[in-house]
Every structure is written in C-alpha cells, then in structure tokens.
Computed example of a mutant assay.
Amino acid sequence: MKIAITGGTGFVGRELTKLLVKNGHEVFILSRTDNKTSMDAKYIKWLTDDANPEKDLDEIDAIVNLAGESINNGRWTENQKQKIFNSRLQSTNEVLRIIQSMHLKPKVLVNASAIGIYPASNEKTYTEKFTEIGSDFLAKTVHEWEQTAATAEQLGIRVAYGRFGIILGKKEGALPLMALPYKMFVGGTVGSGQQWVSWVHVKDVARALLFAIENDIHGAFNVVAPNAKVMKDFGKTLGIVLKRPHYLPVPALALKIALGDKSQLVLEGQHVIPETLLEKGFTFQYPNLLNALTDIYK
C-alpha cells in the first residue's frame, strides 16, 4: 500500500514508518522541510505557502495523521495550550483539504487522538462505548480534534481515531521523565498512587495503527495495553526493571506547583480497555508492563 503520514518524524511516526517499510509498504511523510527522499520514505512538503502536497499523493491508500504539538513539551501556559490545540486543528484541516482536492481519494484516514477525552476517575473503567467527555482542557481538545477528523466521512472516507494512552519508549514520551527520579535513586509513589496509568509500548502503537488501516475499524479505538496499572504499581515495576528503590513519595502539591495544569497528566488518570482492538483480533506484543519495560531498557 501507499501510506502518507503527517508527524512522521515524531516519536510515533518514526516507529510507524519503520514498521510500514518492514512490511513492504510505500511511505510518504508530509513535512515542512524541503522535498527529500530517504531509504525509508519520500518526504513531501506541506503547511508552507509554497507547498502543494496533493500533486505528489496520487493513488494513496491511507493517511495517518499524527501531527500536533506534543503535550509533553514545556509547562502548560495559556500560550502553550493554544499551541497544542491549534496545531492539531490546523494539521487536521489541512489533511481534509488535501483529501478534498485529490481525484482518487484514500480509503481510510487514521487520526491520532488520546484517552484524555475520558473523565479522570479511579473507579470507572472506560471502553470505546463510553460517550461522556471530560471537562478539562485536554478532553475538550481531543473531542474537537476527533470531530474535525470525522468530517472526512462526508467524502466517503473511513475514519478511525486511535486514542493513545501513555506511550512508553526509552528516549521520548512520558517515560524518560517518569524514570529520572529512579535513576537518581529518589523514585517513589506519585500523588495518591491510586490514579490509573493506561500505558502502551510504542511498538504496539505502530502495530495498532497499521491494524486500523488494514481492518474495518470505524471511529474511536483505544490504543492502550490490556493491563493498566495504578501509579503505585507502575512505579514499583519501573523500579524493579531499573534496579532502583521505590520509596520516596512525590506529593501532589509539589507537582501542581512545578507543572501547573500539566500535573493532571500524572496526578489523574483513566482505566482504559482496548475493547475494539481485542474484539477485532489484535494481539499485543507487550500486554504486560514488566515485559514492556524490560524490552525498553534491555
């Protein structure tokens, strides 16, 4: 297949590109940089005044939209929040414009999303059937993002949006910050320790995105491992893998002072189940946290 990726040079995008190439697919990465071609993919300029990406995307089978400012970048000031929101809507609207202008349209758009759309809870368990939307900044951003992507259905395109959990990788995402206290021998329970961490190995994220392209998935699908952990147990497992103690609590107030609204990423959580992926027959390579972290730090 011919598959176009926005955000293809990012954390998930690089892993997805590697998987697609390994499986014999032709990859086109939409980028702000000048056109270039690597052994893995062809780069196509977009989101600049002189860009005309649609002319280079003939007979594309699928588009994966991963573009957007990382929620892990910097403190969540009002300006940063606006940047997070605007970057997602701008890129998604440009994807829609590209699709509209194409004579032969792709069969599917797989759009990134996040489990942050669900309300924070220590008691509830969420599957894709749950329709209540959280009231915080992240939930509202994700909801608007999904609604925008869904308009591609009016063009006859199948749309699926992968609601990512906490994506685990050695050098990017949330894990390096979570692991840092342990590496300094000061790791311990964050906040109450009872908040849920619905995590997923980055390799399984890439595999789930390809699975959504190849299978008849419509609408939301949760991209999380089937075995979520509460923060206390997540930290203990991380300590075991890193061979470091888990003993020094991190008070919620200290994190709120240090991170502001961004502290909700670690102080609040959701217990999310990947029901759609499991029902469709997807098999996780790393369903258990100990195995996932052992692979990452091997």
Rank of each mutant, 00 (worst) to 15 (best):
G162H: 01
R163E: 12
I166Q: 01
M184P: 05
F185K: 14
G173W: 02
M178A: 13
L168G: 01
V186R: 08
M178Q: 15
V159Y: 00
P176V: 06
Y161W: 15
Y182R: 04
L168S: 02
V186W: 01
F164V: 11
K171C: 05
Y161C: 04
G169F: 00
Y182I: 03
L177T: 14
F185W: 13
A174S: 15
G162T: 06
P176S: 10
K170H: 13
A174P: 14
A179P: 06
P181C: 11
L180I: 07
F164D: 06
G165I: 03
L168P: 03
F185R: 14
K171F: 13
G188M: 09
L180W: 12
A160V: 14
A179E: 08
I167N: 00
K171R: 14
K170N: 09
K183N: 12
F185G: 06
G162N: 04
A160F: 07
R163Y: 07
P181S: 12
A160G: 07
P181W: 04
L180Y: 11
P181I: 12
E172D: 15
Y161P: 03
P181H: 09
G188E: 03
L175V: 08
A179D: 08
V186Q: 05
P176Y: 07
K170V: 02
P181V: 13
L168I: 07
K183H: 09
M178I: 15
G165V: 05
M178W: 01
F164E: 06
F164Q: 07
G169D: 15
R163M: 11
F185H: 12
K170P: 03
I166W: 04
G187C: 10
K183V: 09
G169W: 00
I166C: 01
L175D: 07
Y161F: 15
F164K: 00
Y161I: 04
G165P: 05
G173F: 01
M178S: 02
Y182H: 14
Y161L: 02
Y161S: 06
A179G: 08
G187A: 12
G169E: 10
P181E: 08
